[in-house]
Computed example of a mutant assay.
Amino acid sequence: MSDRRRLNGPAGTTSPPVFTPSTGSAISPQYRSRKPNELRKIFLQTGVVPSATGSAYLELESPPRSRSTVLNTSSTIKLSCSVHGPKPLPRTASFSPNLQLSASVKFAPFATRNRQGYVRDSTERDIGMHLENALKGVIIPDRWPKSAIDIAVTVLEGEDDQIDGDRIVGVGLVNMLAGCINVSMAALADARVDCLDLLAAGVGAIVAGPEKPLRILDPASIEHEAILASCLVGYLPSRDELVEVWTNGSSSTQGANAGISFDEMLDSAVAAARGAQTVIKEVLVEALTKTKGGTKKLSHDHMNDVEMKT
């Protein structure tokens, strides 16, 4: 009879694990199979959360892996967004002539290589702040006085960055913010919230090429050896305005040496935003067509009650 007060080892013999020696980087970069101006395929769908006023789901295509790596790396992004409101503020709140917007981003515990906690950290608060600033530039706030709207984005899978020693380099967070802006805009449109324009976000970057740095659209960290600079924009196509700009890297130094200026990298990000806006527009038009065709979402008043039997 075994002793239940102890943790008994295995009955047979075991072999120690053998690990592959690391080369200093957890992610093994692979060659980019896409053209410099080609975007990854985007899957977007609205109306995925019935209990929310508006919702959307966004997923980016994952490039094929050309070589095996020690760690299971991810180069795709999966986001879910739900919009609650506009809803009235509590009676104890002071009068506000404009809509009170609140946007938050939360990583699922299994979203990244390192398990995330249940309390929002500085990265999630930073991305949520940039998302809120971008959405404030497109929503018409004076349509709903003394009202509030809550936008919650859940990151189901995040893009991994390259690791250079103790420093994280790449565009994983920048691509994630762009995806958050796009999925939030689709969810706002699904909630029938009045906006100035159809907001879209895109990322442009300067990467190290075989001879000289190149200017590309929609970069992925796993596809490049080194990303010198990156730029994200929140773009309003009809008004030709920018509501959000986020740059990373030494674009002035590297761009000057390569003949690529910051304005050119900014134009690449705007071109990527135009491509994402095309996808958002097609998805919303398709959803509107289905709604007019009679496939409306059933409300709780029209649902049949289920009788529970013992």
Rank of each mutant, 00 (worst) to 15 (best):
R5P: 01
R6L: 13
N8E: 13
A11G: 05
T13L: 11
P16Y: 03
P16A: 13
P21E: 11
T23Y: 04
A26D: 13
Y31L: 12
R32N: 14
P36T: 07
E38W: 00
L39A: 07
K41I: 08
L44A: 07
Q45R: 14
Q45C: 09
V49F: 08
P50Q: 13
S51F: 06
A52G: 06
T53F: 03
T53P: 00
A56F: 08
Y57I: 08
L58S: 05
L60C: 09
E61P: 00
S68T: 14
L71V: 13
T73N: 15
S74Q: 15
T76K: 12
T76F: 00
V83Q: 03
V83E: 04
G85D: 03
S94D: 13
P97V: 07
N98Y: 11
L99H: 05
Q100D: 14
A108K: 06
Q116L: 08
Y118W: 10
Y118H: 15
V119C: 07
T123V: 08
T123I: 07
R125P: 00
D126L: 14
I127H: 04
L131V: 12
K136T: 03
P145Y: 06
S147C: 15
D160S: 09
D161G: 02
Q162F: 04
I168G: 00
L177S: 10
G179L: 04
M185V: 02
L188K: 06
L188H: 03
L188I: 05
A191C: 03
R192C: 13
R192P: 02
V193W: 09
D194G: 02
A200G: 15
G204D: 05
G209K: 04
E211N: 12
L214Q: 15
I216H: 01
D218W: 07
I222C: 10
E225R: 08
E225I: 01
L228Y: 06
G234K: 11
Y235N: 05
D240M: 07
V245K: 10
V245N: 01
W246P: 00
T247R: 12
S250G: 04
S250P: 01
S250A: 11
Q254A: 13
Q254C: 08
I260R: 01
S261P: 07
E264I: 13
L266H: 12
V270R: 07
G275A: 12
V279L: 07
V279N: 02
K281W: 09
E286D: 14
A287T: 09
L288C: 14
T289A: 15
T291E: 14
T291V: 10
G294D: 09
K296L: 13
K296H: 09
D301G: 01
D301M: 07
H302F: 12
V306P: 01
M308D: 11
M308C: 10
T310F: 14
